[in-house]
């Protein structure tokens, strides 16, 4: 049997904000070359899971490994695209220069991006279909185009693992199609892609595996086996009081 390598593993992860527990004893593994969705209701701790995995916020306990190594040794191999609302869209930077930022991690201190780096950025921009917009200020683009610019930047990072926080929120259908197409292509090239997602209707169509959380890990595994009524009920029940009242009516 072929030995499957584990790209990303979370063991016993607990994170709290002050008194409040955001994530409790989360355990799951992601195989190399999978496109994985992290789903769960609002406030389930999806972004927290991502940030804690990347060492951007401190955890109470738990072990995070990328190919068996701690995140500190693997940063150059991970691209992270945070939510769009964390960006200052008035910043004096144009589209191409934003993508060029993706070449920074591998350059190291004191080195400037060279012609080859700019060429690579241009190629990444072409992949997301925005080469015509390279001189525009980033705030002049639509939400979907902005998200594609940040995907292009992540592509320019040339990493093995991609983390994407809610890429499909507030964007047009064609941008969503372009993005999911590129994510699937990355997966086919053997990269590992982890995406926070909230739209359950497309979860099975988009992702190989799913991780369903609501502070606890509810279920993790192949998409079809996670999207069961029982698991979803368990994850979403406490967030949707009308579900409970309906059940009460039935009984």
């Amino acid at each position: 049997m072929e030995h499957k390598s584990i790209a990303f593993s979370v063991q016993d992860l607990t994170v709290s904000y002050g008194e409040q527990t955001a994530l409790k004893n989360i355990n799951f593994q992601v195989e190399k070359g999978k496109l994985v969705g992290v789903i769960g209701p609002n406030g389930a701790g999806k972004s927290t899971l991502m940030k804690a995995s990347l060492g951007l916020i401190s955890k109470d306990h738990g072990t995070i490994e990328f190919y068996g190594k701690p995140v500190k040794q693997m940063r150059e191999n991970i691209a992270y695209i945070p939510q769009r609302n964390n960006i200052d869209w008035d910043f004096p930077i144009n589209v191409l220069d934003t993508v060029v930022l993706g070449t920074y991690p591998k350059l190291g201190v004191f080195h400037r991006p060279k012609k080859a780096d700019r060429k690579r950025a241009q190629a990444c921009l072409a992949q997301v279909g925005l080469q015509k917009f390279s001189k525009r200020q980033i705030g002049e683009l639509s939400g979907g185009q902005q998200q594609r610019v940040f995907l292009a930047r992540a592509l320019a990072q040339q990493t093995e693992i991609f983390f994407f926080d809610e890429p499909f929120v507030g964007i047009d259908a064609s941008s969503e199609e372009t993005i999911i197409h590129i994510l699937k292509k990355l997966r086919d090239e053997g990269k590992t892609v982890i995406v926070i997602h909230h739209d359950l209707s497309k979860a099975q169509e988009y992702f190989d595996d799913l991780v369903l959380i609501n502070q606890d890990l509810i279920e993790a595994g192949p998409a079809a086996s996670v999207l069961t009524p029982e698991a979803l009920g368990k994850a979403y029940k406490s967030q949707l009081p009308f579900l409970q009242s309906e059940e009460a009516d039935e009984s």
């Binding site: 990347l54 951007l56 500190k72 940063r75 150059e76 991970i78 992270y80 945070p82 964390n86 960006i87 200052d88 910043f91 930077i93 934003t98 930022l101 920074y104 991690p105 350059l107 201190v109 080195h111 400037r112 991006p113 930047r153 990072q157």
Partner: peptide, 19 residues
């Protein structure tokens, strides 16, 4: 440190994520 100042000003999350 122009490069580092630029990215940590524009996108501190990405800057922190790559170390």
């Amino acid at each position: 440190f122009y490069k580092e100042l630029l990215i940590s000003t524009f996108d501190p999350t990405m800057a922190a994520a790559y170390g």
